[in-house]
């Protein structure tokens, strides 16, 4: 009888403990999102809006009648990805943008702790659950890597012309190609968008390092006219890095 009582106490305790553990574990899983929501509603809401539609009270002023406006997370167009065109970004992609910001338009939120930035990332994904249902595959970077050299940059010029980068970015890379000058380019909101001035890597929205540039070229910027060159540069890893080195060579600091 004594043993039985002891056993039943122990059983109850274990069950209670288990329930407690499981429930706290479950609570932790969605509290990440809830904590992310709290941060979002202080740090992000004025631009990206309460419902993630990129229509916060401050959203209009950034560039008013032209692109870019703050991202509409419900549409599911993520510009800055390491994944193929039309796919969801990885968590790391979202985290990277939160950390680095977007030159000219979104300040860096590295003031949030790393943990907080992951929580916001978890919350952002809730705005387009369909998009994030499947885990995305990352585009492979061309291998082998070719470091910057003037020779490589010179070879990159012919790749630049072959890929017709000049149609938008211009022969001198200043973002004044014929297509840009005709004001035909629009983003997914239908707002007029300009081509990036490639001579000014500090202003590259997806980052200005070689790694950033190759990522942009391969994945494209969804929601903008910048297309993915993944298929065109497939099996041409050297040419891909030559192109990157050519873009780097356009900046006066190089």
């Amino acid at each position: 009888m004594r043993v039985q009582t002891l056993m039943s106490y122990w059983l109850c305790l274990s069950i209670a403990g288990l329930i407690g553990h499981v429930s706290s574990w479950a609570a932790l899983a969605d509290s990440d999102i809830q904590l992310g929501q709290k941060i979002y509603e202080r740090s992000c809401v004025t631009c990206h809006g309460e419902f993630g539609k990129g229509d916060g009270p401050a959203a209009f002023y950034n560039s008013a009648y032209s692109a870019p406006r703050p991202r509409d997370f419900t549409v599911g167009n993520y510009k800055f990805r390491s994944t193929p065109s039309g796919e969801a970004p990885t968590d790391q992609d979202i985290f990277r943008v939160l950390t680095n910001g977007i030159p000219g338009y979104m300040p860096s939120f590295s003031g949030l702790s790393e943990e907080q930035r992951w929580q916001v990332t978890a919350y952002l994904k809730q705005f387009s659950p369909d998009l994030f249902r499947e885990s995305p595959t990352v585009v492979d970077l061309p291998d082998p890597f070719i470091p910057f050299s003037l020779k490589s940059a010179q070879q990159g010029r012919s790749v630049y012309l072959e890929m017709e980068c000049q149609a938008c970015h211009g022969l001198d890379g200043r973002g004044t190609g014929a297509t840009t000058l005709m004001n035909d380019l629009a983003d997914s909101r239908g707002l007029q968008i300009s081509s990036t001035d490639l001579t000014f890597p500090q202003s590259f929205k997806n980052g200005g390092t070689g790694q950033d540039i190759i990522r942009t070229v391969l994945t494209g910027l969804d929601g903008t006219p910048m297309p993915s060159y993944e298929a065109q540069l497939q099996g041409r890893s050297e040419d891909a890095w030559h192109l990157v080195n050519y873009v780097l060579s356009l900046s006066p600091t190089h």
Binding site: A58, G104, P107
Partner: peptide, 22 residues
């Protein structure tokens, strides 16, 4: 300092928008 455009914080300089207010 933050490498952004003035209009991130201002409706148009100098009046603040809601991000600038925060």
């Amino acid at each position: 300092k933050y490498q952004v455009n003035c209009n991130v914080c201002h409706t148009r300089q100098p009046r603040l928008n809601s991000f600038g207010e925060q």
